[in-house]
């Protein structure tokens, strides 16, 4: 039998299915006026500690929820529940990042009256950057002990984020970490990045970060309302 070879032009985005689902999540979040924040960083740079602190500050005036992404265990979700916030754990069983479809599976459990939904991604400064989760803001965290050479070594995480939170800044006097260099390098690859110097131990920068989040929530709701009324 004769076999015919032919070429098929496809031009399809391999991340297309993730982007589609992320788009649906984004739409639902916007309808409910929820600001979702996706937190990216290496393991151990202080995502959960930062969330515990800003969660405690914001919870009196806002409805908060936290999605915890980890390879195994409910440990992070338990830490968040201890400060009185609802937390949903996604265990990826080996996968090094969260994907939109993992979020879609638990999305029905998220109350529609939240103000902020924090999504703590799997600790990894590389892979999570490629997967849009439908978030409104992306934070990249870099802790002082990790070193000041990271932005250009892991550019995708820094390019796709809107906020850089330097964490564990209480350790600055003890470590050779050049804050100016980090900020300069990060802004060279992403000039729009907002930078906060924080410490979950001393409390440095946390009020500023909370004020920023409150202002963003207000701004986005205002923009949404205008988009809906068409004015």
């Amino acid at each position: 039998m004769e076999q015919k070879k032919k070429e098929l032009l496809v031009l399809e985005d391999i991340l297309g299915s993730n982007k589609r689902i992320a788009g649906e999540i984004k739409k639902k979040l916007e309808e409910h006026g929820i600001l979702a924040v996706n937190l990216l960083s290496s393991p151990g740079s202080g995502k959960t500690s930062l969330l515990e602190k800003i969660g405690s500050k914001l919870k009196d005036n806002y409805q908060l929820g936290v999605i915890e992404g980890d390879i195994e265990t409910e440990r992070d979700a338990e830490r968040i529940r201890k400060i009185g916030l609802p937390a949903w754990q996604i265990t990826t069983h080996g996968a090094c990042h969260l994907e939109a479809k993992m979020l879609a599976k638990i999305f029905d459990q998220i109350p529609a009256d939240l103000d902020f939904l924090f999504i703590e991604n799997v600790g990894n400064l590389v892979c999570p950057a490629s997967f849009d989760l439908g978030e409104g803001l992306r934070f990249v965290l870099l802790s002082v002990p990790e070193g000041d050479d990271k932005p250009k070594k892991y550019p995708e995480a820094f390019i796709t984020s809107q906020v850089l939170a330097l964490t564990k800044c209480d350790l600055l006097p003890y470590l050779p970490f050049d804050t100016d260099r980090v900020i300069k390098e990060a802004l060279e690859i992403n000039p729009a990045l907002k930078v906060f110097k924080t410490s979950a131990v001393s409390g440095e920068g946390l009020d500023e970060l909370c004020a920023f989040l409150e202002a963003e929530l207000k701004l986005r709701r205002h923009q949404n309302a205008r988009a809906i009324t068409g004015s």
Binding site: Q3, K6, E7, L8, D13
Partner: peptide, 30 residues
């Protein structure tokens, strides 16, 4: 690399290529 235009010095630049992952084409037997 710096996010500054070498021609006019502006920082208002956008990423236009290099982020995507596409299936371009397939060769098939029918």
């Amino acid at each position: 690399f710096s996010y500054v235009c070498p021609a006019c010095g502006s920082r208002d630049m956008e990423l236009v290529a290099g982020r995507d992952l596409y299936l371009e084409k397939l060769e098939i037997e029918t």
